[in-house]
């Protein structure tokens, strides 16, 4: 579904992504690992359409469409979802109102009728159970004054509501205690189907105990320098990144 070829991206003069190649198919889970500052969040942001980054070379296809040509909202409507490493506060807008706007705009994009209040209520109830989130949190201004765990859980709730074809989770595990981590991981696992795919961005292998990846890639200085299966994550856990890096330099 996703085909990234030789992707280069920069901010100003600073080259951050240096030729990324990545193929993701339906049903797969990919983990992208790598030390801090290696470009993981940048890759996620470029895929989601953040305009701060300039793509200087390369291409990204999503179900055969040129992803880079689409606005962020069109990418979402096409089925892409990014769970933010740092979810943003939206003052005065509740999660429920936020999600209602999102759903109905996506439905309009797809030529579907708007959902009504009753349908929303039923759907929200169902999805709340996925991540064990309660109504009071959803009625509050989105992310405002939320704890780290609440923010991450809310991201997964939004993912459950939007049912993306490709979900990119950027450090969704960071800042979570073990119970919250388990809830978030269970949510992600429940949402997995043979038709969708997940990219997990993380620099710990911890999350991968709960969500088993099919592929593990190591990102370093804006390039994927090594790929393997889940055993690579375990090896990184044991030996760190230095052995890969020193082999390169």
């Amino acid at each position: 579904m996703l085909s990234v070829k030789n992707l280069h991206a920069r901010i100003g003069d600073k080259e951050i992504l240096n030729g990324i190649n990545l193929e993701v198919h339906a049903g797969e889970v990919h983990a992208i690992m790598g030390p801090n500052g290696s470009g993981k969040s940048t890759l996620a942001s470029v895929l989601a359409g953040r305009s701060d980054y300039e793509v200087s070379e390369g291409s990204v296809e999503f179900f055969g469409k040129d992803l880079l040509d689409l606005s962020p909202e069109a990418r979402a409507a096409e089925g892409l979802f990014l769970a933010f490493q740092y979810p943003v506060e939206i003052p005065g807008v509740s999660t429920t109102n936020f999600m209602k706007s999102a759903i109905n705009e996506i439905r309009a994009y797809r030529g579907q009728d708007a959902m009504d209040a009753v349908q929303f209520l039923k759907m929200f109830k169902e999805k709340m159970a996925y991540v064990n989130i309660d109504q009071t949190l959803l009625s509050r201004a989105l992310n405002e004054g939320f704890s780290g765990g609440e923010k991450k859980r809310n991201e997964i709730f939004q993912m459950a509501v939007l049912e993306p074809k490709l979900a990119i989770l950027d450090e969704t595990d960071s800042g979570l205690d073990i119970d919250a981590l388990r809830i978030v991981a269970e949510g992600v696992n429940k949402l997995k189907t043979p038709q969708n795919a997940t990219i997990l961005v993380t620099h710990y292998q911890r999350l991968l105990d709960y969500i088993i990846p099919d592929f593990v890639h190591v990102l370093y200085k804006g390039k994927i320098v090594k790929s393997g299966n889940k055993d690579l994550a375990l090896e990184l856990e044991e030996r760190g990144y230095d052995w890969i890096i020193s082999a390169l330099d």
Binding site: R50, S51, S71, E73, A76, I90, P91, V93
Partner: peptide, 25 residues
């Protein structure tokens, strides 16, 4: 811009995102 991008990444158009933020304000 951060808030606008976050909202757009969920499928909300730029115009709607601006409206929602201003009205909430």
């Amino acid at each position: 811009d951060e808030a606008l991008f976050y909202m757009r990444s969920r499928g909300i158009s730029k115009a709607t995102a601006q409206t929602l933020l201003l009205l909430a304000f």
